[in-house]
Design a protein around this nucleic acid. Sequence first.
DNA 1: CACTGTGAAACCGTTCACAGCG
DNA 2: CGCTGTGAACGGTTTCACAGTG
Lengths: 251, 251
Amino acid sequence: MATGRTHRPATRSRGIPEATVARLPLYLRALTALSERSVPTVSSEELAAAAGVNSAKLRKDFSYLGSYGTRGVGYDVEYLVYQISRELGLTQDWPVVIVGIGNLGAALANYGGFASRGFRVAALIDADPAMAGKPVAGIPVQHTDELEKIIDDNGVSIGVIATPAGAAQQVCDRLVAAGVTSILNFAPTVLSVPDGVDVRKVDLSIELQILAFHEQRKAGEEAAGEPGAVPLAPKESGKGPDGDVPAVMPA
Amino acid sequence: MATGRTHRPATRSRGIPEATVARLPLYLRALTALSERSVPTVSSEELAAAAGVNSAKLRKDFSYLGSYGTRGVGYDVEYLVYQISRELGLTQDWPVVIVGIGNLGAALANYGGFASRGFRVAALIDADPAMAGKPVAGIPVQHTDELEKIIDDNGVSIGVIATPAGAAQQVCDRLVAAGVTSILNFAPTVLSVPDGVDVRKVDLSIELQILAFHEQRKAGEEAAGEPGAVPLAPKESGKGPDGDVPAVMPA
DNA sequence: CACTGTGAAACCGTTCACAGCG
DNA sequence: CGCTGTGAACGGTTTCACAGTG
């Protein structure tokens, strides 16, 4: 994802597969809902349905954590909530800083899901001096100058970047230099980070583009081989790399 | 992801692998940047670095699109931009509706990346009557009552859900009933949709939880087998599913 | 000669199917 | 008997290494 190594080789001896890790939060959410309704146990089938996966996958996933179920019965909801929380490291509180308090940064600061489980917004940081001191989601925005001090004082190891693309790498470098080792990047840029720093990327326009691809597929399919509509241009025909480049390019 | 089938089996005869599709937007962005700097050609090595992947993967990816490179030289930037745009369906304009104009919805409406490449925000929809008529990002918010009419009038096939979790499934059902076949879901819920509808999910708290997992790993590792600090609870010891359930559970 | 395009190998993730256990 | 836990089969993805070509 980033140029430097992004997440370690995933081949730690006792490692849980990445794909499984990515689903644990899903299970945890479903379990928490059950817990709130005081449901004592679930079968893999029921829980899988609630989490939107199939039961075989869920059982395999849980098998990496240990044998936490009871054959013939299912899983103890409370117990699993605890085990998964612990595995994810949510039994401790992670202080998080958000850098870039524009529309998105403000939305993130206000997002309830942050504060609720294991995360605490330790500070909001923005480069605009006019923002400094203004409270967003009840937290006063601080100026970028303070970044290193904030990271250090609060022992922050997770940073969220919600700046414009142009500023992202620079902010990233400062976060990393100050000791942050996990970054959630909302800016549409590839970040490069040193070994040992994890970057996850959330990119709205990429998600839309993937949807558009499938959408186009559907359209092309339902009227397969029809003239008009989506011009499913020659796939194998024009191989010559230049000469007849259509003058498209939106801008 | 969702309960109903989410994306088709990916085994369309001439299909481009999902993993490749997910990277095309990345390549496109890197290429667009090169194009703006009037760079005429790139090697797979250079482009791969810019996109944050390795060159073998990039070449394999491009090989699914056809033979668009020149051996000994590289790829023609303009030509590739066009080919990838076409493959992703971005040579047409996709009208998109955003439902739920809270902090996040507003951020999305203002997000430049939406409008810039192939997407147009056709309407903003919110359930709060007080919002109706108020412009956000220059577009007046419309009431949920109008949803079906808006979808229909604008020929919208892509919807973005930025409502609270509780409203998401209901909004989703209405979008689908009105003809939307691709959904980008920001609400922290599993959506169930009928066959043929694609759902992609963006979940902030899940991303953070995945980072927390790796973060905890790092902490446990650098002081392996030390007392104090992160209590790396017994991994293989307590197997008995109940009896000694720690009374944790944050709420 | 440098770089693409691609078979083949290695790897990872998912699904199947059933043995094993409460 | 019902449901978990898991080895084995499968399919997709990444990486390797090099033949092929402008």
